[in-house]
């Protein structure tokens, strides 16, 4: 059945992981290249190399089926059926039908565990953005390259989003576990360790948030303590003056220090105008 299908629809198959080889054991790379020669000898390893590069750095792999632009697929053979039949038990994988020279016909579906959790809206957005990127190029091979790169980027963000969801679920699970242990009072004999892959730095920051808050509060307390200490020290400090024997002036036994005089009977008489205090008889009438 597989061979009959490939005879009229499968032109070239690019596989991003080793699982693909197991599903089609009867076809070698030479066979595929012989069946369809849509890509040149140089272009084929370039595209498959990028898919392998993506597969190395991502949990979410791409499986791409490449067809000619005018290739007609049989009604019984759809991308959804392919996902259900062949990839149901595998990890989450993106299945792509690409039509060389006609990117608008491209199709995208998710197969494997957790495929149902991927929203149709997200899938449509990813496909649309990849098609738009591909349409920016005029050359067919360049279109294919742009499509794959854009799809890889979109899958990276999807993966990050899934990791955040997983982390939140793990945190919720641990909280529930702790709550149960607290309620029972017996403690938990075996703690389930829920590992979550979180690529974003925000979650790391979030996990250390209580330490950050504690440090900040300690610093605040230290500064407040220093300020209060300084204020108390300033208030309790005593200031002394050296006692100097001064000769009596103007016959005064305790004080002859006459300081400044300032008048405040009119608002226009500013202090600066009263700075130079002169005898009354020297003032103009």
């Amino acid at each position: 059945m597989k061979l009959s299908l490939f005879r009229w629809l499968l032109l070239l198959l690019l596989v991003s992981d080793s699982a693909r080889a197991e599903s089609l054991p009867q076809l070698t790379d030479e066979d595929r290249a012989r069946l369809q020669q849509l890509l040149s000898k140089q272009e084929h390893p370039d595209r498959s190399g990028f898919l392998e590069y993506h597969a190395e750095g991502s949990e979410l792999k791409i499986r791409m089926y490449l067809f000619d632009s005018k290739e007609n697929l049989a009604d019984t053979y759809t991308i959804e059926k392919l996902c259900e039949d062949q990839n149901a038990d595998e990890p989450l994988t993106a299945i792509v039908f690409c039509f060389l020279g006609n990117p608008e016909r491209s199709q995208l579906a998710f197969a494997g565990q957790g495929a149902a959790e991927v929203l149709a809206l997200d899938r449509r957005k990813m496909l649309k953005s990849a098609i738009i990127k591909a349409m920016e190029k005029s050359d067919h091979v360049m279109q294919l390259e742009a499509f794959i790169v854009e799809l890889s980027i979109s899958l990276f963000w999807l993966e990050s989003k899934r990791a955040e969801t997983l982390a939140a679920q793990a945190a919720e699970g641990s909280r529930e576990l702790a709550g149960k242990a607290w309620a029972s009072g017996n403690g938990v004999e075996k703690v389930e360790v829920v590992t979550a892959i979180d690529a974003s730095g925000f979650s790391v920051l979030k996990s250390h948030l209580h330490w950050i808050i504690l440090g900040f509060l300690s610093l605040l307390c230290l500064i407040t303590g220093c300020v209060f200490g300084w204020l108390i020290w300033t208030r309790s400090r005593r200031y002394h003056f050296p006692v100097v024997e001064t000769p009596e002036r103007l016959g005064a036994s305790y004080a002859a220090g006459v300081g400044a005089v300032i008048a405040f009977h009119k608002k226009l008489g500013s202090p600066s105008s009263q700075r130079n205090q002169v005898p009354d008889y020297l003032k103009r009438a």
């Binding site: 003056f241 006692v243 305790y254 220090g257 300081g259 400044a260 008048a263 405040f264 009977h265």
Partner: peptide, 17 residues
């Protein structure tokens, strides 16, 4: 409406007009 400051001998060397 006038204000003035006077001071003793101890502050003679320390306070100026």
């Amino acid at each position: 409406k006038v204000a003035s400051i006077s001071f003793g001998y101890m502050l003679d060397s320390f306070l100026t007009e």
